[in-house]
Design a protein around this nucleic acid. Structure first.
Length: 109
DNA sequence: ATGCTGACGTCGC
DNA sequence: CGCGACGCCAGCA
């Protein structure tokens, strides 16, 4: 399990509750800042991955819930975020800048 | 085996 | 400042 996907899953699972991250940040942390699309693709497969990956904490660089439609249903992602104390308005994370969790910073070792 | 698409991001005009 | 095109990796037709 050393595929690019698993790498993404591991990073996403490190995201603390009430925090959010972006595809580009994760992609860049993995070394390929231009492979943000692949990160999203990994999220697509994260549904049948265990332990479950908090993909709802991963949004685009604008803090927009771009992948909400890919969840169980519309609003599911928002509901999960709300359950963690994150306010979502117009599919956008409120205070995304403060809630932003950058692996290259938080996990900078 | 080749080509297109996809939950993004950055650069160029 | 707004819009368009390209790049990237993996899965599927």
């Amino acid at each position: 399990m050393d595929d690019f996907f698993d790498l993404v899953y591991q990073v996403v699972r490190q995201i603390p509750p009430g925090r959010v991250s972006s595809y580009g940040a994760i992609a860049r942390y993995l070394g390929s800042g231009k492979s943000a699309r692949t990160v999203g693709w990994a999220m697509n497969a994260s549904h049948h991955v265990q332990p479950p990956v908090p993909a709802h904490r991963v949004v685009n660089r604008n803090g927009m819930l771009s992948g909400q439609h890919h969840f169980e249903g519309p609003g599911a992602m928002e509901a999960l975020l709300n359950a963690e104390g994150i306010s979502v308005v117009d599919h956008c994370v409120v205070g995304f800048n403060e809630l932003f969790w950058d692996p290259s910073v938080e996990l900078m070792l």
